[in-house]
Design a protein around this nucleic acid. Structure first.
Lengths: 190, 190
DNA sequence: TAAATAATCAACAACCAGTTCGATAATTTT
DNA sequence: AAAATTATCGAACTGGTTGTTGATTATTTA
């Protein structure tokens, strides 16, 4: 990434903007947050904001990108092995570790597509694993199964976060694992 | 509902506004559609729009409400029986029947919550059916199971629509039925 | 045809979006 | 420490949207 050390002023500015945006996102979706509003809250000149980002959406994008890369990196090893249950477990763990940030980004007003992007890291592995285990040869069915599985998993994770992450990451991962196992098996026993 | 027959002008005005909104929603989410833009497209005075609706969101709300009531009504009988597979099948059928409208409302730029609202008509029936079959007594688990099931079902339906509704409503319903089948069993064999 | 209702038009003040400018302050380099 | 660089700021400006007003015109209904 960008290794050139940034001016201290820039670092502070971006920090204030990031925190303000996440704060505002607790009350309204990103699309309803204006640059003016954001800058007022962050006590940053609107001009300064524009010299760093094109829009609040772009700022959110950069926040998400950083989180995405962080999580992706932590999943790298497991991803290679194709061990889906472990993959899910580590995702839950990573979310748990980045609790504050995830609570906002994955909330009602957050970005519904973010978590999907992460699960999609294992899209190909999932499909080929199902194919190998003889669940189906029909690509369309497998994609439907994948759509069902990921959406269901995301919903469970979101509900988990929404309810205050009372269960442990491991418990949630085990639960999702059971759900997935069942869906796949049902498709097979046609 | 409001049975007073409306002025013909009012009917036309609302018709133009509805069609324009659905047209614009093919290209951008509701939150990004301004009253000005909508009225220009519909060739309706902005003032007239405000005399009927508070915002584009409110207009969409009224469109959705009408569709919701229509679908809800067609599900009434089945809902009483608690026959979930038939319930799902009829939902798919209803979506198929209202294809044009659903394509927009349930698209990427549409309202993610709409379909959930319909499925939620069977929330209590689902939970109590699971409870009766002894899957679990733990309410939290049951709610997680419900979250997983509905989100997965919605994803499959949305993908079905997105891919052009090539499969028949019945085929999709059967597929979803399989996914949901025995989601219990796994949870049970804890 | 007259009365009631609806749509239109024009104009309003308040706000936001981006952009430019020059002044000021902080930081880095020499 | 002084000079050069860079970031922030405040102000101003154009062009746009918002939601509301009151007056006017067209349509419907009685």
């Amino acid at each position: 990434m960008n290794k050139e050390k940034e001016d201290r002023r820039v670092i502070y500015t971006k920090m204030f903007l990031r925190e303000s945006l996440l704060e505002l996102m607790k009350n309204k979706p990103i699309g309803k947050i204006t640059p003016t509003e954001l800058c007022r809250h962050a006590n940053i000149n609107r001009n300064t904001f524009y010299s760093h980002y094109d829009s609040p959406e772009a700022l959110l994008g950069s926040i998400e990108e950083e989180l995405y890369e962080r999580i992706k990196h932590s999943l790298e090893q497991t991803l290679k092995t194709g061990n889906i249950p472990k993959f899910l477990s580590e995702i839950c763990q990573a979310i748990y570790m980045n609790g504050d940030l995830c609570k906002t980004i994955l909330s009602d007003y957050g970005d519904k597509a973010f978590l999907k992007r992460i699960l999609d890291l294992a899209h190909d592995k999932s499909i080929s694993a199902w194919k190998a285990s003889g669940i189906s040869e029909d690509m369309e069915r497998l994609e439907l199964l994948y759509a069902f599985s990921t959406a269901g998993s995301i919903a469970v994770i979101e509900k988990w976060i929404q309810d205050g992450m009372k269960l442990s990451p491991e418990e949630i991962a085990v639960f999702i694992g059971k759900m997935l196992q069942n869906s796949a098996r049902n498709l097979k026993s046609k």
